[in-house]
Design a protein around this nucleic acid. Structure first.
Length: 255
DNA sequence: ATGGCCACCCGAGGTGGA
């Protein structure tokens, strides 16, 4: 089972790129973030996939697209921590529980920062109230908008005191992992790998990136993980315009 | 030589992203 997570920065602007990923990377389940549109205006990506969409006009929005032959048992669009913004969609597929997240960016200790902290607290409540991460097959993926450790930013000195790398938000990330999640990329390698490059300043050509997108998995899922793929070339392509985020694919042994 | 922000709103330029 191959699962994609990808902050598309508008699904309407990126539908061909997503379609190609579905086809060439044989994706079974796609967790998309920042679709930036409503369900009515969500484009047809591929006829053999069904998309469960939690959208809104102009901003945010998440969608989980699943191969038509895969049966989806349950869908929950939204949770209390969103506070009116579309940032959460949960799907249950057999024994698998998939949480697709677009976390708030926040600001420098203003209202949006407190919103981000509340969002993380609510997310942990959702997980701890619904799952046992030592027994259940849980995959939490998406754009978490936090660079967890110094290795996850291209220049830790430059990023000190900046949003996505503030001590308080990194502690929120620690607490999420503390529930029993394993950060699959960091588990599989100690190399520095980024999933976001700013459009400005040629960041992707200079290697000036951040790791903001993650696969966090429960303990039993770790044993079922075959590998993780980071599609930097998709970010580096020029035409059509890429997203500023990098797609990630994890392959799981199905059960 | 190369590349130097993009997409949304809508029909201009302001705003949010990170």
């Amino acid at each position: 089972m191959r699962v994609l997570t990808f902050n598309v920065n508008s699904i309407r602007a990126r539908k061909e790129i997503v379609r190609d990923l579905f086809y060439y990377k044989s994706i079974d389940i796609a967790c998309l973030q920042e679709i930036k549109t409503t369900e009515e205006n969500f484009p047809q990506i591929h006829p053999e996939y069904k998309c469960y969409i939690h959208g809104q006009k102009q901003y945010n929005g998440v969608a989980t697209c699943v191969r038509s032959r895969i049966e989806v048992d349950k869908v929950q669009k939204g949770f209390p921590g969103e506070e009116g913004e579309s940032r959460f969609i949960y799907t249950q597929i057999g024994k698998w529980h998939l949480i697709n997240i677009y976390a708030p960016l926040g600001d420098l200790y203003g209202e949006r920062f407190h919103y981000k902290i509340r969002f993380y607290r609510r997310l942990r409540e959702f997980v701890s109230q619904n799952f046992n991460l030592h027994k259940d097959l849980v995959v939490l993926c998406g754009d978490l908008n936090i660079a967890h450790q110094a290795i996850d930013v291209w220049d830790p000195q430059q990023w000190e005191g900046k949003v996505v790398f503030l001590p308080e938000e990194r502690i929120e990330f620690d607490k999420l992992l503390g529930l029993g999640f394993v950060d699959i990329l960091r588990y599989s390698t100690n190399r520095q790998i980024f999933t976001f490059y700013d459009y400005r300043g040629g960041a992707v050509y200079k290697g000036e990136g951040l790791r903001l997108d993650y696969f966090l998995v429960s303990k039993p899922v770790v044993k079922l993980t075959k590998g993780i793929e980071v599609l930097l070339n998709v970010r580096k392509r020029k035409k059509p315009t890429p997203s500023d985020h990098v797609p990630l694919i994890v392959e799981f042994r199905n059960v």
